[in-house]
């Protein structure tokens, strides 16, 4: 192996690479936000008693968790403007694609979390005289928040990692900048390693924060 590592390039260009974090966070956390909204909405449809609403939710989940994200992003960013004359900036298209995908995954996480709460909790609450809405507010949601956190954290991390795919539509986030500099300086190993470290630090601190939130729970299920 006669490759000579020259991490010195990172010294000079690390600030430029890290400058992409703003876009990474905008697309990452933006899509996390909309994933939660979509996930909650479709999970509600899935647990409703209406067959048609259930089927709509199932179709949504099955489409958007199976379509490869690259294809989804290209359709939204390049094909939609041609077919329907609607389109947005690379950042907007990316947030939409990642949200549609994340929403499908989040929907499954919410549904699993709600189903983890035994029906007997419902019965106990109703037998005290609580209404259905009070039962959901006082009994189901406070427990569901914690039972959905671990699977939901996985969804959020997937969202953050998927931001790297948005370089195909030229969102100037960290990975795009690494590619840009590589073309210029031919130092792919150093530059992509630098980008990876930035992502690892971001996602690492995010999952650490989520663990701290999980630890706020003082009780265990019985």
């Amino acid at each position: 192996m006669d490759y000579v590592f020259q991490f010195g390039i990172l010294k000079e260009y690390a600030p430029y690479l890290a400058g992409g974090l703003g876009y990474t966070c905008m697309v990452g956390f933006g899509s996390i936000f909309f994933s939660i909204v979509l996930g909650l909405f479709f999970a509600t449809l899935q647990i409703s008693n209406n067959k048609i609403l259930k089927i709509i939710a199932l179709i949504y989940v099955d489409i958007f968790r199976t379509v490869p994200l690259v294809c989804l992003l290209i359709w939204i960013h390049y094909v939609m403007p041609i077919l329907f004359n609607v389109g947005g900036s690379p950042t907007q298209s990316s947030i939409i694609a990642l949200s549609l995908n994340g929403g499908a995954l989040a929907c499954e996480a919410f549904r699993g979390g709600l189903e983890a709460i035994p029906l007997t909790q419902n019965q106990a609450s109703l037998s005290l005289g609580f209404s259905r809405i009070q039962t959901i507010l006082f009994v189901i949601i406070p427990q569901a928040v914690y039972s959905v956190l671990p699977p939901l954290t996985n969804v959020f991390i997937t969202n953050l990692k998927n931001v790297t795919i948005t370089m195909i539509v030229s969102v100037p986030e960290v990975m795009f900048r690494a590619q840009e500099l590589t073309v210029q300086f031919f130092r792919p190993l150093e530059l992509y390693t630098g980008a990876a470290i930035i992502y690892i630090l971001l996602i690492g601190s995010f999952s650490y924060a989520m663990r701290r939130v999980e630890k706020l729970r003082k009780w265990e299920s019985i």
């Binding site: 007997t120 109703l126 037998s127 005289g129 914690y146």
Partner: peptide, 25 residues
């Protein structure tokens, strides 16, 4: 009505085989 039933359930206590306590309280 549902409202009357809820009022009734407030006056009828129920105890279950598996206790069904609220684990988060």
């Amino acid at each position: 009505s549902q409202k009357e039933l809820r009022a009734l359930r407030q006056r009828v206590g129920m105890v279950f085989q598996m206790f069904n306590l609220f684990p988060h309280m």
